[in-house]
Nucleic acid binder design. Sequence first.
DNA 1: CTCGATGCAAACTATTTGCAGGCAC
DNA 2: GTGCCTGCAAATAGTTTGCATCGAG
Lengths: 149, 149
Amino acid sequence: MGSEVEIFRSFIQGRNMRYTPEREAVVREVFARHDHFTADDLYLGLRQKNQRISRSSVYRTLPLMIAAGLVDEVFQEDGVSYYEHTYGHEDHCHLRCLVCGRIEEFTEPAMQEMEKRLARRLGYRVTGHRLEVSGVCPRCQKTEDQGQQ
Amino acid sequence: MGSEVEIFRSFIQGRNMRYTPEREAVVREVFARHDHFTADDLYLGLRQKNQRISRSSVYRTLPLMIAAGLVDEVFQEDGVSYYEHTYGHEDHCHLRCLVCGRIEEFTEPAMQEMEKRLARRLGYRVTGHRLEVSGVCPRCQKTEDQGQQ
DNA sequence: CTCGATGCAAACTATTTGCAGGCAC
DNA sequence: GTGCCTGCAAATAGTTTGCATCGAG
């Protein structure tokens, strides 16, 4: 932590925008987390830390962090967006268990190659990807078996 | 078309649910389309064909078609879900141009292998995946170049 | 006939936005 | 001091839901 804050400050100031305490608070909260979070998670987390901030500011800061390349929206569930910070993270994909809802991450080196191949084949300049694999996790398979299903 | 309707009818009746004209209308509309559509697209399409149906019924029928394996929710945009029918379609992924918003499809044989590898490695029983690659399409790259960007 | 399905309108909820006042620069 | 940013409350909009009625089986 620390360098992410600096990166965001540069990004904001480089665009001649104002580096406010609210914006810094959001960056800090984002990087204090190491899981998937919603806008409201950030808001409530900051509130619990006695940071005075509004939901609006959280909602207004997230797109800036995405533009700065520090955050990605990784999936949506029940109409709610989930985010994660990306700085210093290895590129990874998400695996969702349809039974227990748990989401885990995995890295897949083949993805990068696939992307390059795609870019060449279709003429796209590829900037990102989102792979979500769904299925049933080992634990839930076991439960199903016991349940004779 | 035709066999999809039959599949849905069997699915509904097999669950001891009622096969209503509204449900059949939705299936027919879904398979009359060959692009991505929203729940409202279906509703409006049916209305234009003078089918008397409510939005509620469309919204209530879509999850049934997904459960029947005939439809997939493929992405969300601005809080709106987009669907496509899957029956008889080759498995494919989506490529989104961030500049013009166009979404095109591509098939990627490596996906299947990747899935199998994953399943083995992590013990998951994999049932589906969603890969969305984003970037800039050839046409928009050209425009950017002309614009000196 | 019975009970699940429909249509309508109201409810829900995440996110966005207008506006008056505040503060980064 | 200027004008971007904030907080608040209200608006937005897709989707869901309660309920009276309808109709498939």
